[in-house]
């Protein structure tokens, strides 16, 4: 029972790190990015290539899984995404689905269709026993890492100058520009960090979620649920939504495997009917 709760929390934290970039781009920058999972997949495959094939240490692989998708994100933002910020949502949907399709086919071509795993260091395998509760070491690592990232994100958004600039740029881009804020640089950096976090999540989650070329499409709905149910006005909303989703999904698969992901979709639809703006939104969004 507690083990399930623990696994669920680890899963939820992972989902949050994966989706946090999406929460920012979708909530703050008002961009529907269905290709977000492609960055997560990129991170996962970078880690696989470096750790399994090139023999890098696990931690270095994780770092690379953040850096490479972040650079990729920055590049894509500068060259492609910036053109669709002002377009209607339908165009954003088409554009990002197109990107996701391309990523799926490209990874399929380069890495093959089979599922891959990142080799874990020996120290992270197995379970430790805490007062009768079996706790996977790797899951514990995920919870600690993701917890740190969450705190750092919240701090960066709420307390730092950059966070203030980002919020200003989102509230009113024109006024922010007038105040000397380089809005497009702020957006690019935000996008890059979001993509990097997705990549890190993809690498961390390869063990739990599984990694194959269809990752972006398979988990797109989960990311969207986190953002849509959590509401897009804060970072805590998606965080709570991700935890609930993680615990619900793990518990659902354990207690009622015949329903599978069915319960998750039902809950999402019910939540969206009752609260179209998300569960944790204080005021109606823009």
């Amino acid at each position: 029972m507690l083990t399930i709760l623990f696994d669920g929390i680890a899963y939820g934290m992972l989902l949050f790190v994966l989706a946090s970039g999406l929460a920012v781009t979708m909530g703050l920058m008002n961009l529907i990015n269905l290709a977000h999972g492609a960055f997560a997949m990129a991170g996962g495959y970078v880690a696989v290539a470096l750790v399994n094939k090139a023999g890098w240490p696990f931690a270095a692989g994780l770092l690379a899984a953040f850096v490479v998708p972040a650079l990729l994100g920055a590049l894509m933002e500068r060259t492609l995404y910036r053109h669709v910020y002002a377009k209607p949502h339908l165009d954003q949907v088409l554009f990002t689905i197109g990107l996701a399709f391309m990523a799926v086919a490209a990874v399929d071509f380069a890495m093959g269709t089979q599922q891959v795993f990142v080799q874990l260091p020996r120290a992270l395998e197995g379970q430790i026993d805490l007062g009768g509760v079996g706790i996977g070491r790797y899951r514990l690592l995920i919870i600690i890492l993701c917890g740190l990232i969450t705190v750092a994100l919240q701090y960066a958004l709420a307390r730092t100058l950059f966070g203030a600039r980002l919020r200003a740029a989102v509230d009113d881009a024109r006024t922010a520009r007038g105040l000397g804020i380089n809005v497009s640089a702020v957006f690019a950096l935000t996008f890059a960090v979001g993509s990097g976090l997705a990549g890190l999540g993809g690498a961390l989650g390869a063990e739990i979620l599984g990694l194959d070329p269809h990752f972006p499409l398979k988990f797109m709905i989960y990311f969207l649920i986190v953002v849509a149910v959590g509401g897009t006005s804060s970072i805590t909303g998606p965080f709570i939504a991700a935890l609930l989703l993680g615990i619900g999904d793990v518990a659902g698969k354990y207690y009622a495997p015949q329903f599978g992901a069915f319960a998750i979709y039902t809950i999402m639809i019910v939540v969206l009917i009752v609260r179209p703006q998300g569960l944790f939104t204080r005021v109606a969004g823009k």
Partner: peptide, 8 residues
């Protein structure tokens, strides 16, 4: 996918 991206 490429066609979609180009169209947009």
């Amino acid at each position: 996918g490429l066609i979609l991206v180009i169209i947009v």
